[in-house]
């Protein structure tokens, strides 16, 4: 039997330090600009097989569905 985690935020990538706190289980990656935000999100999502969601305020979350 295979057990998997579902609907879990596995990483947070943001340009906005004020929008994201440091608590919680997901690591937070700070980036300087929009281009870097997209690039890093794509790289991490490929490693974790997660889906990149844009929640606004310059923040992307990677969710394992």
């Amino acid at each position: 039997m295979q057990i998997e985690l579902g609907d879990l935020i596995v990483a947070i990538i943001t340009m906005n330090k004020d929008a994201v706190g440091t608590g919680g289980t997901a690591p937070v990656f700070y980036v300087g600009n929009n281009e870097h935000l997209g690039e890093l999100s794509e790289k991490i999502s490929k490693i974790l097989d997660g889906v990149v969601h844009d929640i606004g305020m310059g923040t992307y979350i990677i969710v394992k569905h």
């Binding site: 997209g38 794509e42 999502s45 889906v51 990149v52 969601h53 844009d54 979350i61």
Partner: peptide, 20 residues
């Protein structure tokens, strides 16, 4: 609608990356 994928106006999901 921004990152929100819609079909005939019904919200399907949130797609973060422009390439996708």
């Amino acid at each position: 609608d921004g990152p929100i994928l819609k079909v005939n106006g019904i919200v399907i999901t949130n797609i973060g990356l422009q390439t996708q």
